[in-house]
Amino acid sequence: MGNAARLIVLTALALLFMVPYIWMVSASLKPTDELFRNHMALIPEHFAAVQNYGRVLREVPVAQYLWNGVVMCGGILFFQLLFAIPAGYALAKLRFAGREFVFGAVMLGLLVPPHVPALPLYVALSAAGMLNTFAALIIPSTISVFAIFLFRQFFKSLPDELIHAARLDGMGEAAIVWRVALPNAWPAATAFAIFSVVAHWNDLFWPLIVVTGQDRATPALGVMHFRTEEAGDDFAALMAACVLMTAPLVLAFLLAQRRFVEGISTTGLKG
C-alpha cells in the first residue's frame, strides 16, 4: 500500500475512533435544548459550558470521587509493591526449601480471575462491617500474583555478582531488596504501576459490590450514580461529568504516552 493511501486510511480510522470523544466534549458544551434540536452540529450555537460543568460541580462531589480514586489506586499499588517486590526477589535470587512450591502457587494464582474470590471476600468484609470503607476497596487487590511473577522475572535478569557484592558490603537481604534490587527494577515497577492504576481506576465490578452511597465512591461509581440517579435526560451535564472523570487518566496518558504503552504491552500478560 502506498504511503499516502496508508495515511488516508489511518486518518479516517482515527477520526472514527475519536467520534465518542469529540461528541462527548461537544455535547458537554451545548445547552440541553440544543441537543434535542440540532443533533449533528459539532460546534454549539450557544456555549453552555458554564451551566453544564457548573451543574456537575454543584451536584456531584467530583473532587471527592477523584480523591477516592487516588486513595484507592495509591493504596492498592503501595501494598501490591510492598508484598510483591520482596517475594519476587526471594523467588528469583534466594535458595530455600519450598521455593518451587511457592512459585507453583504463583503460577496457579495467575489463572484465577479476580471475580472468583469476590463473593467470599464480600461476605467476609460485610461480616466485619467494613463495607463502604477504603479498606474494602483496597484490601482484596493488595496481593497481585502477577506482580510477583513480573518482579521475579525481572530480578532473575539482575547479575548475581551485584547481590554478592551487596552481601560483601554488609547488607542484609531486606536491605538488598530495597536498596539494590528495587532501584534496578524501576522499568518493571513503572510498567506495573501504570498497568495497576489503569486497571483499578477504571474498574467498576468491585467498587459496585462493596460501596454504596457517595462517600467512598470511585470515579466509575460516581459517573454511574450521576447517570442513573440525577442526570435524567440532561445529556449535556452527563457528558460534562464524563469529561471531568475521564480527563485525569487521559491527560496522564497523553503526557507519558510511551510509558503507558510500554507498561501495558509488557504487562499485557494478565489482561
Binding site: W201, P219, A220, L221, V223, L238, M239, C242, A252
Partner: peptide
Amino acid sequence: VSLTVAMAAA
C-alpha cells in the same frame, strides 16, 4: 485508558 463507565455514557 479511558474510564469505561464514562465512555459507555458517551
